[in-house]
Every structure is written in C-alpha cells, then in structure tokens.
Computed example of a mutant assay.
Amino acid sequence: MQQAICGYHLDEEAHWVAKLSCGHFQHVRHDPPWQMRPWVLTQASRNKMLGHRLNCIKCDQGAPKDQLAK
C-alpha cells in the first residue's frame, strides 16, 4: 500500500528512517549498489521527498503503528 513520507529520524545506527502517513517507519538507506537513494544524504533533498509515496509492506500485513523507543 502506498503511503506518504511525513518525516524522518535516525535509528540507533545512524540510518535514516522515514515516518509514513500511516504511522509505520521504513528505512530509507542509500547503500549502493543495492539501494540507490542519494536523496537521503542531505536535509534539503530529504525535505523535497516529503509527501512522496513509498510502498508500506507493514500496512499490507496489517501491522500496528511503529513507535520510537524511549
């Protein structure tokens, strides 16, 4: 199911994670040659991707919303 990116945070290993409008989180790594997402490298390019839709497998699976660890 396609869901819009509405924010970002860094995980405990300093990898970027997108917060989706459905409440799920999804890693958005730039890890060539496997994952090509150079837009995660700068704040400006991440901001331009706000609203962009990603496929949310967690929605397809009916998973509960994600929460940040405290």
Rank of each mutant, 00 (worst) to 15 (best):
residue 1 M to P: 10
residue 1 M to Y: 09
residue 2 Q to L: 15
residue 2 Q to G: 01
residue 2 Q to T: 07
residue 4 A to P: 07
residue 6 C to H: 08
residue 6 C to T: 13
residue 7 G to H: 01
residue 7 G to R: 02
residue 9 H to K: 07
residue 9 H to D: 07
residue 10 L to V: 10
residue 10 L to W: 13
residue 10 L to Q: 13
residue 11 D to W: 08
residue 12 E to A: 12
residue 13 E to G: 10
residue 13 E to A: 14
residue 13 E to H: 15
residue 15 H to R: 15
residue 15 H to K: 13
residue 16 W to M: 08
residue 16 W to R: 09
residue 16 W to P: 15
residue 16 W to G: 03
residue 16 W to H: 11
residue 16 W to V: 09
residue 17 V to W: 03
residue 18 A to R: 00
residue 19 K to T: 13
residue 20 L to A: 01
residue 21 S to T: 09
residue 21 S to M: 03
residue 22 C to F: 04
residue 22 C to H: 05
residue 22 C to E: 03
residue 22 C to M: 01
residue 23 G to K: 05
residue 24 H to V: 02
residue 25 F to N: 08
residue 26 Q to Y: 05
residue 26 Q to K: 11
residue 26 Q to S: 08
residue 27 H to G: 00
residue 27 H to K: 10
residue 28 V to H: 05
residue 28 V to F: 04
residue 28 V to K: 07
residue 29 R to E: 12
residue 30 H to P: 01
residue 30 H to T: 06
residue 30 H to F: 10
residue 33 P to N: 05
residue 34 W to P: 00
residue 34 W to V: 05
residue 34 W to M: 09
residue 34 W to C: 08
residue 35 Q to P: 00
residue 36 M to I: 15
residue 36 M to V: 13
residue 36 M to T: 12
residue 37 R to D: 06
residue 37 R to I: 02
residue 37 R to L: 02
residue 37 R to F: 01
residue 37 R to A: 05
residue 39 W to L: 05
residue 40 V to Q: 15
residue 40 V to C: 15
residue 41 L to Y: 03
residue 42 T to Q: 08
residue 43 Q to A: 15
residue 43 Q to P: 08
residue 43 Q to T: 13
residue 44 A to G: 14
residue 44 A to D: 15
residue 44 A to Y: 11
residue 45 S to F: 12
residue 45 S to C: 11
residue 46 R to F: 03
residue 46 R to L: 07
residue 46 R to P: 01
residue 46 R to K: 09
residue 46 R to A: 02
residue 47 N to A: 15
residue 47 N to G: 14
residue 47 N to K: 15
residue 48 K to V: 09
residue 49 M to V: 07
residue 49 M to D: 04
residue 50 L to I: 13
residue 50 L to A: 04
residue 50 L to W: 02
residue 51 G to C: 04
residue 51 G to F: 04
residue 51 G to D: 07
residue 51 G to H: 05
residue 52 H to P: 02
residue 52 H to G: 02
residue 52 H to C: 08
residue 52 H to D: 06
residue 53 R to S: 08
residue 53 R to E: 13
residue 53 R to A: 08
residue 55 N to S: 12
residue 55 N to M: 10
residue 56 C to G: 05
residue 57 I to E: 10
residue 57 I to R: 12
residue 57 I to V: 11
residue 57 I to Q: 11
residue 57 I to C: 03
residue 58 K to E: 09
residue 58 K to F: 01
residue 58 K to L: 10
residue 58 K to H: 06
residue 59 C to M: 03
residue 59 C to A: 04
residue 59 C to Y: 02
residue 59 C to I: 05
residue 59 C to L: 05
residue 59 C to E: 05
residue 60 D to I: 09
residue 60 D to R: 12
residue 61 Q to I: 07
residue 61 Q to P: 00
residue 61 Q to M: 12
residue 62 G to C: 01
residue 62 G to S: 04
residue 62 G to N: 06
residue 65 K to M: 11
residue 65 K to W: 06
residue 66 D to Q: 04
residue 67 Q to A: 14
residue 67 Q to V: 12
residue 68 L to M: 12
residue 68 L to T: 07
residue 68 L to P: 02
residue 69 A to F: 12
residue 69 A to L: 14
